[in-house]
Amino acid sequence: MTNVTETLRVTVQHADADADADADAAVVTVAGDMDLHTASALSEHALTVVQEGAPHLVLDLAQVDFVDSTGLSTLINLMHATQEAHGSLRLAAVPDRLARMVTMTGISQLIPVHATVAEALAARAADDPAGRAAGEARSVG
């Protein structure tokens, strides 16, 4: 009999507000299994972060043990949600098993994958050198 764990731990660290390029970014650290039973928890946490003003997310997946198709679909849904909020999604520290799945399914063509969280944040800052100023310009309506 397969032992199904329903454990997923999600922690959020907002980027340093003093660093203009990262003021609207957050690192979401995921630990455990991303599957049918837990993917909704990841989605809820990440979407809350986006709604609270950090549309640029880096998912730190170093501690992810297992991902099923629901977990992969959650990544795609989060990508769409961040894009709708004029943000972005990046994956960091993706374990080898998951990296193969992300590559084989084509997700790596849609969502940038980085070796570390620091690299993902640096690439995000390079893509949007205006940083917080661009975020403020978006919020003025």
Rank of each mutant, 00 (worst) to 15 (best):
N3K: 14
N3Y: 10
N3D: 14
T5R: 14
T5A: 13
L8I: 06
L8R: 03
R9D: 14
Q13R: 14
D16E: 11
D16N: 13
A17F: 10
A17P: 15
D18W: 00
A19V: 15
A19E: 14
D20V: 13
A21F: 04
D22R: 14
D22V: 12
D24A: 15
V27P: 04
T29K: 15
T29W: 11
T29P: 13
V30Y: 09
V30W: 09
A31Y: 06
A31L: 11
A31D: 10
M34T: 06
D35F: 03
D35L: 03
T38R: 08
A39M: 05
S40I: 08
A41H: 13
L42G: 02
S43V: 09
E44S: 13
H45T: 12
A46H: 02
A46Y: 02
L47N: 14
L47W: 07
L47I: 07
T48E: 11
T48G: 15
V50H: 03
A54M: 00
P55L: 14
P55F: 02
P55H: 10
H56L: 09
H56F: 12
H56V: 13
V58C: 11
L59I: 02
L59A: 00
D60E: 06
D60T: 08
D60V: 06
L61R: 08
A62H: 11
A62L: 12
A62D: 07
Q63Y: 11
Q63R: 14
Q63I: 00
V64W: 02
V64R: 09
D65G: 15
V67Y: 03
D68K: 07
D68V: 01
S69I: 05
T70K: 00
G71Y: 04
G71L: 03
L72N: 07
S73I: 07
S73R: 11
T74E: 02
T74D: 04
L75I: 11
L75Y: 01
L75S: 04
I76L: 09
I76S: 00
I76W: 08
I76E: 02
L78I: 04
L78H: 02
M79E: 09
M79H: 12
H80P: 00
A81Y: 06
A81D: 03
A81S: 08
T82C: 15
T82H: 05
E84R: 13
H86P: 00
G87I: 01
G87H: 01
S88P: 07
L91E: 07
L91C: 01
A92W: 07
A92Q: 05
A93V: 05
V94F: 01
V94L: 03
A99Q: 10
A99F: 01
R100G: 09
V102E: 02
V102Q: 06
M104T: 08
T105D: 08
I107G: 01
I107L: 15
S108E: 11
Q109L: 12
Q109K: 12
L110C: 03
I111G: 07
P112Q: 06
P112H: 01
V113E: 04
A115W: 01
A115C: 07
V117S: 04
E119L: 12
E119D: 15
A120L: 06
A120Q: 00
L121E: 03
A122E: 14
R124I: 09
R124A: 13
R124F: 03
A125R: 10
